[in-house]
């Protein structure tokens, strides 16, 4: 059981998405996260630990434990 638990924890990790905790598989890319959340990719921008990540690099940007992901779009304002 201990091994199974260890194996489980080694395959998933916690990250923060728009301020909410979320458990995802190790190796998930930023692009994969948007797919997982069924979010559009047009009219959308993302930041990782307060740094903007350009859309063309989303597929190769692999998320790490504890990272803070912000996924943004336009809303009414101004």
């Amino acid at each position: 059981m201990e091994n199974a638990a260890q194996q489980f924890s080694s395959e998933t990790m916690n990250i923060w998405v728009n301020g909410e905790p979320r458990l995802i598989s190790v190796g998930t890319s930023l692009d994969g996260l948007l797919d997982l959340l069924k979010l559009p990719k047009v009219g959308v921008a993302a930041a990782l630990d307060a740094e903007v990540v350009h859309k063309r690099t989303w597929p190769e940007t692999i998320l790490a434990e504890g990272q803070r992901v912000e996924i943004l779009t336009i809303s009414q304002g101004g």
């Binding site: 069924k38 047009v42 921008a45 779009t73 009414q76």
Partner: peptide
């Protein structure tokens, strides 16, 4: 038209402001 930049929320069946 001006817009703000905010966290995305699932729009469900409705059209997004962007679209």
């Amino acid at each position: 038209v001006t817009v703000a930049i905010r966290r995305i929320k699932p729009t469900g069946s409705g059209q997004s402001l962007y679209d």
